[in-house]
């Protein structure tokens, strides 16, 4: 019997509310010291990653969020039996505890921004051309022409990156004020200017949302997406101080990974 993990919670108490897990399985908590790991029992995971499964997992984690601080587990995290689970809890206890304290009363918001990349590039090209008008110099040979084209493209890219940095900085000044931690990713695609996760105190969530709408109205040519509050998927980290403990933890991670491989599980 495998245990499907939904998250680590900051209490060893039983879950009071009846929660349905993946494929209708019963969700319950296994206590370890003063924290707990929320699981359901599962025979085998045969189906691929479907939207339904991901939403079922997410719904469990969000229900837990109502009563506990939760460290959400990656979708399709499986452990082979209770003994392996408790061994994992023992090894990671200090990390789990530290993360639970750090994330107490906080949730994650996602912000994505699409900018008019084509217009930005066109604007840059026009500006560079006006700075350096074409001169009718001697005819260039192929190698020199090639280098000139590359150099111009390089300058356009540099300017494109600089403008992206400027926009992100301006947006982050507003949003960052209401966040305790953040993860910003710039230009994952040419159009996707910003893909950000902000960790926000629950008491600041309204202010954060207000700041978002303020930025949105100040950038009419841009497209915005705000999502949340989510469990803090992007802000759970494990410490790496003790090499001996790291090696031990690496083995346990491998155990978890192996158990995932056995059932053909993928991470999301």
């Amino acid at each position: 019997m495998k245990l499907y993990l939904y998250g680590i919670v900051d209490s060893s108490d039983r879950i009071k509310e009846a929660i349905d897990g993946l494929r209708g399985s019963r969700v319950y908590s296994i206590p370890y010291c003063d924290i707990g790991v929320v699981v359901s029992e599962i025979d085998q995971v045969t189906q691929g990653v479907t939207q339904g499964c991901v939403l079922e997992h997410e719904a469990v984690v969000e229900k837990l969020m109502a009563d506990f601080t939760v460290l959400p587990m990656r979708f399709r995290t499986l452990v082979d039996g209770r003994d392996n689970l408790l061994a994992m809890m023992q090894s990671y206890y200090r990390d789990f505890k530290g993360n639970l304290e750090r994330l107490r009363n906080k949730s994650e918001f996602g912000v994505k921004v699409i900018w008019p990349a084509d217009k930005v590039k066109e604007n840059i090209v026009n500006r560079l051309r006006s700075d350096q008008p074409e001169t009718s110099g001697p005819r260039r040979s192929a190698g020199t022409r090639f280098m000139k084209e590359k150099f111009e493209r390089y300058r356009i890219d540099e300017e494109f990156q600089t403008r992206a940095d400027q926009f992100i900085k301006a947006m982050d000044i507003f949003l960052g004020k209401f966040a305790v931690e953040k993860r910003l990713e710039k230009l994952k695609t040419e159009k996707l200017l910003l893909d950000a996760a902000y960790l926000v105190e629950k008491s600041q969530a309204c202010d954060f949302r207000e700041a978002f709408w303020h930025i949105k109205s100040a950038h009419p040519g841009f497209k915005f997406l705000l999502s949340g509050p989510w469990p803090a998927y992007n802000f759970v980290g494990l410490s790496k101080h003790d090499p001996a403990r790291d090696a031990e933890q690496a083995n346990l991670f491998a155990e978890v990974a192996r158990s995932q491989d056995l059932v053909g599980a993928d991470g999301v």
Partner: peptide, 19 residues
């Protein structure tokens, strides 16, 4: 199905495409 989280945008298709 999702209990709390909300996704707000005017351009869901464009974001889906970029993601």
């Amino acid at each position: 199905m999702i209990a709390h989280a909300i996704v707000e945008t005017d351009s869901p298709d464009e974001f889906a495409e970029q993601i």
